[in-house]
Amino acid sequence: MTAIIKRELVSFFKNPIGWFVIAVYTFLSAILFTLFVIWQNTSYLGDYFGFWLFFVDMIVVGILSMRFFSEEKKNKTDQLLLTSPISLYQLVLGKFFGALIIFLTCTCVNFIYVLIIDIFGTVDYGCLLTNLIGTVLVLSSMIAIGLFVSSLTESTIAAAAATIAILFFMFVIDFFAMFFPTWLADIIMHGNIYAQFDDFTNGILNLPPIVYYLSVTVIFLFLAVRMIERRRWS
């Protein structure tokens, strides 16, 4: 599994696209920081982490999902991975942790903003910690969804587009919920990947959202493994 993680990291940081992604990520997060923190004259980071940063992650996960399995399949390098003496779970987890580390590296840019707030105001470190924990959990769920979508198709463009579409749909799912009966709408709204993040932005570490994000991660990783296995049998 460590070999796969290492390969993902080397490939990302050696590729110009990797640095382009980091640049876009930093640029967008700087705009959001300016909009939600500096212009609001506040030291509260919840809004920054909460609403808009998701859009950035959504697009970046989409771009990264192209590389997960679709590109391997397209370049026939999946033959090396699937005929090597590692299990499918090790393969999928290797890809997952590789992507998570890449994202966490991108997220490091936030420490610059923390430093800026610390110089000009007061940082609520408790709130910052819950936001960071929440971000890691949301990213895990998003990456797992991206991995699953990538395991479905050989087309890298389709993988990116489908991942962004699914993550966007999960964002606007509340809108569709109002067309359903109340009991069903409640269930649908609980499935909103972004609504579950509210507690973290408010500095609250609650068990249900943690369980929710971990469940989404595990389920989609499991589905990705099953999908690769199914393709081997088809």
């Binding site: 290492k6 390969r7 080397v10 490939s11 370049n75 033959q79 090396l80 090597s84 003496p85």
Partner: peptide, 19 residues
């Protein structure tokens, strides 16, 4: 099954670890 963005050294090192 080659990764074109890697050098021969990196690639063989990766396969060594993978196996």
């Amino acid at each position: 099954p080659l990764y074109h963005d890697m050098t021969v050294k990196e690639y063989l090192s990766f396969v060594y670890n993978l196996k």
